[in-house]
Structure formats: structure tokens, C-alpha cells
Design a protein around this nucleic acid. Structure first.
Lengths: 173, 173
DNA sequence: CTTTCATGGTTCATTCATTGAACTTAACTC
DNA sequence: GAGTTAAGTTCAATGAATGAACCATGAAAG
């Protein structure tokens, strides 16, 4: 969505949230970051997003406090973008939305499935582990390719996600 | 977001979901519909949305199966837009997003609060009633104006929401 | 039986955001 | 010093959002 102008008359926390994460591409950037993507070039290749838009979105997320930009090497200087606690809290709504899309809008079964790694059991829509009954913490969740997975993409992130992967672990390996 | 072109390369149920509800204004229309708004003119006045955009969004929601358009009187012929089960299932992610926005992006406390009416207790972020421990069904949830409520808007829907109101009950009364 | 009103739209010119290609910067590598 | 990689910025063209004006239908008022 957009800038100052937007939704400003709306007396609602949802509108505030959408001013940030309702912008086009933003939630997909967050999804990738939850998977563990951290670098500009990897977001770029995995999302097929115009460079200018990616720059703007990462900056907006950083300004809002949902991501942090930090230097991970000095020579040559390189920065990476990682989710803050605020950003990681988007996991619950993102997962719920994805499961809703899977139920109602996807054709061939889930593209990816999410498992509570210690219990080796698939999470339910709410992110709860049916085995231990707890809401799985992000660090204990594993993404796996599902039956509806598409093998067309050849970018490094897509390739890495052909194998089970712990959420938030830097991607691609 | 947009039409055929969009997110099509994304191998992800979230992308499918965002093609529909990630479009600007769409999730606010859904939020209003969850409150009980049903008529074109009421969405229009409450959202301050351009008429052309509202028409397009309602049509997209109907086409996707999240809303149903139905005649509620014959003379003069008048239609209303109501959420289907698929649409009502968006309550969980919408509520979660709103609570996230409230925690991280809102200044003066919640604009509205959601309560399990039979227990008369405020729901937690996940929509669970702390008193009875169950996920509250939409029909049993009451919206109430919160401490951060803004009293500037004068449209019929805003006026009706100054008082406690059962979700999905036709609005304005 | 003509005018006016209410509702629910469509049309259209302007503004604004997104796209995608090309260019820039900076530092390292050969 | 030529080439490469990473991370951007710039810019012209396209497409969507905006907001005002217009249109259609039916009912109610005069």
C-alpha cells in the first residue's frame, strides 16, 4: 500500500499493520526472512522482485523495527537483513494465511509443510504441534517440500528448500 | 496487488492468498464484513474507499468464493455482500494481524477489543477465551470500543461501533 | 405523470506506484 | 588495470488507485 496518505482515517490496528505489511511484496519478503534468507541478492533471485521495490521494502521493514540491517563482514563490507523479535512475531499470521490459501486457493496440495522438528510431526494451522500440544517456537520448526512443490525455480534459495530446513537458519546454506 | 501477472512464479500458498487478500483495501473490506457490514454504501462510507476500487474488490472476493452477493429485497432490488465460510475463516489471521499492529504500531492502546460474550472476557491474541479456554466462534464474539478509539468518524458504521456489537450481526443495526 | 431522492454502480482524466532495464559504486581477484 | 561480485540507484514506460462526475433503477412526493 502506501505512504502517509494511506488508511489514515481508519480507526483500527489492522490498518496500521497493513500500512507496513500490506504493501505489495512485503509479506513475501518477511516469509523469506522467516525461512532464513538474509541477503539482498537472495531475496532478489528468489522473489523475482524489481530491485527498486526490494530496496524500498527492506528499508521500510527496518524503519518500522521489524528487521535489522547488520554488517556481517567488513571486507568487502556486506550487510544482511534479519528479522527482529517484532518481525518474527509475524510467523503466526503468515502461517495462518498460508494455510488458508492452501485450503481454498491451491490446486495440488501444499507446496511446503511445517513440522515440529523434535516431535517430527506436522504442525496444525495454528502452528501447534499435535504431538506435544505446544505452539512450536520458530527455532524448532522445520520446513519441508510438500506434494504440491514446484521444481521449476533454480535460484539458490529454491534449491536449498528442496531439502528439509530449519526456520531462521541462514539460507542458502 | 494484482492480476494474472502477480506472484505467479511464487511456489507458495501464501502468494496465492496474497493475490486475493493482499490487494490494497481487500483485507479492510473483509474486516468490515466480519463486523457485520453488508451494503455497498456502508463499506463506502466507513472505508473512504474510491467507488471503483470497492466494486472491483467486492467482485474479486465474490469470484474467489470468500463472499456471496445476494438479494435481500426485490423492490427496489437490493443486494448485500456477506462472507462465506471461506471468508469467515479469515477472522483468525485478521485478528492476529490486528493484535500485532496494536502491539507494535499503535500509539494509544487498542481501538477496539474483542470479547467472548458468554464469558464476558477479552480474547487473547490467538482468539482464545482465557476463561473457558476455547477458541471463540465468531458468533460469540463481541467488539467493543477500546481506550484508543477515535471519535472523529461520523458514518453510520462508526457510530454503531461506539457500542458493543456482536460480530457478523448486520451493521449498522 | 413529472420531479426528486436513494442506492449502487460505471466512466474517465489525473496522480502515483510498480516494472524492468540500464547504470553506479565499491571492493576484491586475477 | 580488466574483470567480477554484491548491492544498490536512476529512469522511462506501464498499470493501478484516486476522486469527481455521470448513469440507471425504482420509489416516493407533489
Amino acid at each position: 500500500m502506501a505512504l502517509g496518505k494511506n488508511y489514515e482515517g481508519q480507526d483500527c490496528s489492522l490498518a496500521r499493520a497493513l500500512e507496513l505489511i500490506g504493501e505489495r511484496w512485503t509479506l513475501l519478503v518477511v516469509r523469506d526472512a522467516l525461512y532464513g534468507v538474509r541477503r539482498y541478492g537472495d531475496f532478489l533471485a528468489h522473489l523475482d522482485i524489481p530491485r527498486a521495490v526490494l530496496s524500498q521494502r527492506l528499508q521500510a521493514l527496518v524503519e518500522a523495527g521489524a528487521m535489522e540491517r547488520r554488517r556481517y563482514q567488513e571486507s568487502p563490507p556486506r550487510d544482511e537483513y534479519v528479522l527482529t523479535e517484532m518481525g518474527r512475531e509475524l510467523w503466526a499470521p503468515v502461517h495462518l494465511l498460508a494455510r488458508w490459501g492452501e485450503r481454498h486457493l491451491s490446486a495440488n496440495g501444499p507446496h511446503r509443510t511445517f513440522h515440529h522438528q523434535p516431535c517430527a510431526v506436522r504442525l496444525d494451522s495454528e502452528g501447534v504441534c499435535p504431538s506435544c500440544g505446544a505452539r512450536a517456537p520458530l527455532e524448532e520448526i522445520e520446513v519441508r517440500p510438500g506434494p504440491g512443490a514446484d521444481h521449476a525455480r533454480q535460484d539458490p534459495v529454491s534449491l536449498a528448500l528442496r531439502h528439509p530446513h530449519r526456520m531462521l537458519q541462514p539460507l542458502p546454506g
